[in-house]
């Protein structure tokens, strides 16, 4: 379980996180939804110790993050984080060199799934393929938790479909997935939980099936209520 407890953070004078709390379970897909502004990405960075927080606490399976945690949780930012001059296969070597959790078979399977050519240089990839490689590098790690920042934005519809396919496939297995998005439509049926964030605050945290079952509302209905009064 990822526990974010009352996390506060200021950027200069602006309070970007005003006491954010939520949890994300293993085996579930949790979606951080926010229509505007910062916050979502900052939370993910904070979880990975890529940006400091002013107060609060973040625990991964009850522990604060340390070097071993990076074999257990990984973060896929919205842009690829491998050097442009590297070939895909070089990136694989790099990952295999450093991560015990790197799963070469899974990496190969994902290459096929995404129809990518490992000898291609990262700088030569199309936008869609860059996004796929970015995702692949995270998915091929045998980690329990995956954080993905806007995996569906800025890519073409077919890539989006392929990526959505990943979520329903064994590639996610029983991992805990946290994704951020500002566009819920495409993925409403893919997620378990929604965390509505606005201006650095969690406005509502709910199970999407429960809301449909008990209140007959879609995620967008709830968002409309929460964001628009």
């Amino acid at each position: 379980m990822i526990e974010v407890k009352n996390v506060k953070k200021k950027y200069g004078r602006k309070q970007v996180l005003k006491g954010v709390s939520f949890t994300a379970e293993k085996g579930e897909i949790t979606c951080l939804i926010g229509i505007n502004g910062v916050g979502k990405t900052t939370i993910m960075k904070a979880i990975m110790a890529l940006t400091p927080i002013d107060s609060g606490e973040i625990l991964i399976d009850g522990e604060k993050i340390r070097k071993e945690s990076f074999e257990k949780i990984t973060f896929i930012p919205d842009a690829i984080t491998m050097l442009p001059q590297m070939k895909i296969v070089d990136a694989f070597t790099f990952m295999a060199d450093f991560y015990k959790s790197w799963n070469p078979e899974r990496a190969k399977e994902l290459l096929q799934f995404f129809k990518l050519d490992a000898s291609e240089r990262i700088s030569d990839l199309s936008k869609g393929n860059t996004a796929k490689v970015n995702l692949l590098l995270g998915l091929a790690l045998d980690v329990d938790y995956l954080l993905m920042d806007e995996p569906f934005s800025g890519i073409d519809i077919f890539t989006r479909e392929q990526i959505a396919d990943v979520f329903t496939s064994h590639l996610i297995e029983d991992r805990g997935v946290v994704i951020t998005t500002h566009e819920i439509n495409d993925i409403e049926h893919l997620i378990d939980r929604a965390v509505l964030i606005d201006n650095g605050e969690v406005l509502k945290e709910f199970s999407v099936e429960e809301v449909r079952e008990n209140e007959g509302k879609s995620v967008v209905d709830v968002m409309r209520e929460v964001y628009q009064g």
């Binding site: 579930e28 959505a164 396919d165 329903t168 496939s169 049926h189 378990d192």
Partner: peptide
């Protein structure tokens, strides 16, 4: 898992 994949829905929902 197959069902989730075919219907493009969350695997936990398919399970349910």
């Amino acid at each position: 898992r197959e069902l989730a994949n075919q219907l493009k829905i969350n695997p936990n929902t398919a399970q349910r």
